[in-house]
Nucleic acid binder design. Structure first.
Length: 268
DNA sequence: ATCAGCACCTGTTGGC
DNA sequence: TGCCAACAGGTGCTGA
């Protein structure tokens, strides 16, 4: 479900409320376990003060004293909610009670989402690649990452080890604005195609953050509210509908087992 | 070293 | 109206 813009929105919602608070109690579902197998024990988190909340790829990062971090991955249907006065939430998988009486709830219908406590460098520990907004990521660096890769550009964008944070919606959208077909082999893109793709990717991610993310179905922000960017999608979920630029019906194919949307005229 | 395919879960939707 | 297959924003594992 949530991709970079949704995760960024939640992290920004939570940061000012959680900063300086201490975790006084933690409850976590055991079947199936919400904590990842490679997590430090959950009890390590109790009694710790929260320094900040950020993001690495699609992970929400809750940074604690003692070089400790809690990474939250929402996968398809996870939500992370702040409650100033705690009340019941459906599909709750974990709760963090804070020293001011507030609570952070992790709820997830499909139970794919995971928590992981760890120490050390987040990008290294979590295996996430470069951030799309990193200044050092230019057409040249993109070219080096993609050199020799035969995967379709869309599949490559979804692999978090390369560029981290792009998911199915924003991969489709950025390829549309760049005028590149999802099936094009990433290693064979021209420099100008890579340039256009980077510009499109950043523009669409920035706009989506501005609109507080896309709520196609389950996504909610840190206050439980929907995003607005689903109203501005150009191709995602629009199979058969006219392309906003040329009027040709948007096509849907399956690539890497994911629904993939593009305009057969605007995308070469 | 890649990459396709399936597994993990539950809920909603669309076609017959 | 009812049933069931297909599909859903993600990733990890297996085996070719």
């Amino acid at each position: 479900m949530p991709e970079l813009p949704e995760v960024e929105t939640i992290a920004r919602d939570l940061a000012p409320r959680l900063r300086g608070r201490t975790i006084v109690r933690l409850q976590a579902a055991r079947r199936p376990p919400v904590f990842a197998p490679n997590s430090l024990p959950a009890r390590e988190l109790v009694g710790r003060r929260i320094r900040d909340v950020g993001r690495a790829g699609k992970f929400i990062l809750i940074e604690l004293d003692g070089d400790l971090r809690l990474a939250v991955h929402l996968r398809m249907t996870g939500n992370l909610l702040y409650q100033s006065s705690p009340g019941p939430v459906g599909y709750t998988r974990a709760t963090l009670d804070l020293d001011n009486g507030a609570r952070v709830v992790f709820a997830d219908v499909r139970k794919f989402g995971r928590l992981r406590a760890f120490r050390g460098d987040p990008r290294e520990q979590l295996g996430v690649g470069i951030d799309p907004f990193a200044p050092e990521l230019d057409a040249r660096a993109f070219g080096e990452l993609a050199r020799g890769r035969r995967a379709p550009v869309k599949s490559w964008l979804l692999d978090q080890r390369h560029i981290a944070g792009v998911g199915n919606i924003y991969a489709c959208e950025s390829l549309f604005y760049a005028g590149v077909r999802p099936k094009r082999r990433v290693g064979k893109l021209s420099r100008s195609q890579r340039e256009r793709l980077l510009v499109s990717l950043r523009r669409v991610l920035r706009k989506a953050i501005h609109h507080r993310g896309s709520s196609v179905d389950d996504y909610r922000d840190g206050e439980g509210k929907k995003g607005e960017f689903q109203k501005h999608l150009a191709v995602y979920g629009r199979a058969g509908a006219p392309c906003r630029r040329c009027g040709t019906p948007i096509r849907r194919i399956v690539l890497a087992q994911r629904g993939t949307f593009y305009c057969p005229v605007c995308q070469a």
